[in-house]
Simulated assay, not measured.
Amino acid sequence: MRVSGLIRLLALVFALVATWLFLRSYMNLSKKTIRLPRWLGLAPKKTEVEKTKCGLSKPCPANFFAFKISSGAANVVGPTLCFENEMIMSPVKNNVGRGLNIALVNGSTGHLLRKDSFDMYSGDVKLLVKFLVEIPEGMLVLVASYDDPGTKMNDEIRKLFTNLGSSYATQLGFRDSWVFLGAKDIKSKSPFEQFLKNNPDTNKYEGWPELLEMEGCVPQKVF
């Protein structure tokens, strides 16, 4: 066999082997999912969602306290009071009650002082008056209604809440929804308050308005 013929034969064999290796490699790749970042030698970036205190829609600035207050839903689901990522009162903690649920928090340190619920239907009027009168200086007052907050609320209680910065305490009545954050001896009306009147024409639930949810950032020693 001539040398030129041998070279052509070897070239043909090489071409066939190269084609077979290419097809084999292609078939193996076609059975796998190629992820572009890994193929390029780059690690995929992880999208981290920033966690906020009390699940707020955005974090609070420095020297501000985060809070979220939800009223009860009809007489079925109780209210929640969260402050600086601490769930102070909630149905899960089993420490809420029909009427008004109130927590006192130190406006400088953010520490919880006291929490309690007052049944305004059966008549915890005297207990609530005593509670409100004895609120120490510098306290933030978080309030959430549940079922019926206003049936037996008297003028004295309404005035005490008004002195804490409420704009709606004088209107609060049977089965109204109310959430509020005020303070002892506030010099103006609180910007943190929501109120919804019990109205058969607009109620979301049969006999009750819809629940209210309020979140925000309150500065330390703001009042």
Rank of each mutant, 00 (worst) to 15 (best):
V49D: 05
V49M: 11
V49Y: 10
E50H: 10
E50F: 08
K51Q: 13
T52F: 00
T52M: 05
K53E: 14
C54E: 06
G55S: 15
L56E: 02
L56S: 10
L56C: 12
S57C: 09
S57L: 14
S57G: 11
K58D: 12
P61M: 06
P61N: 07
P61E: 06
A62R: 08
A62Y: 04
N63W: 02
N63L: 04
F64P: 00
F65A: 03
K68D: 03
I69F: 08
S70H: 08
S71W: 05
A73L: 08
A74G: 05
V76C: 09
V77S: 10
V77R: 12
V77P: 02
G78A: 07
G78W: 01
G78R: 02
P79W: 06
L81T: 05
L81S: 03
L81V: 13
F83D: 00
E84Q: 04
N85E: 15
M87E: 15
M87N: 14
M89L: 11
N95Y: 12
N95V: 11
N95P: 09
V96C: 08
V96M: 13
G97H: 01
R98N: 12
R98V: 10
R98T: 11
N101H: 03
L104F: 08
L104M: 08
L104S: 04
L104Q: 06
N106A: 06
G107P: 04
S108I: 09
S108N: 15
S108R: 15
S108C: 14
G110E: 02
L112Q: 03
L112G: 01
L113Q: 12
R114H: 15
R114N: 15
D116M: 01
S117R: 00
S117E: 00
M120A: 07
Y121Q: 06
Y121H: 04
Y121D: 05
S122A: 14
V125F: 01
V125Q: 02
K126Y: 07
K126D: 15
V129L: 12
V129G: 10
K130V: 06
K130Q: 14
L132H: 09
V133N: 10
E134R: 08
I135G: 02
G138N: 10
L142E: 01
L142Y: 02
A144Y: 01
S145W: 01
Y146E: 09
Y146L: 11
D147F: 12
D147L: 05
D148Q: 11
D148K: 03
K152D: 07
M153S: 10
D155P: 03
E156L: 15
I157G: 01
I157N: 01
R158H: 08
R158V: 12
K159A: 14
L160F: 08
L160T: 05
N163M: 13
L164N: 01
L164Q: 01
G165K: 00
S166V: 11
S166L: 08
Y168D: 09
Y168E: 13
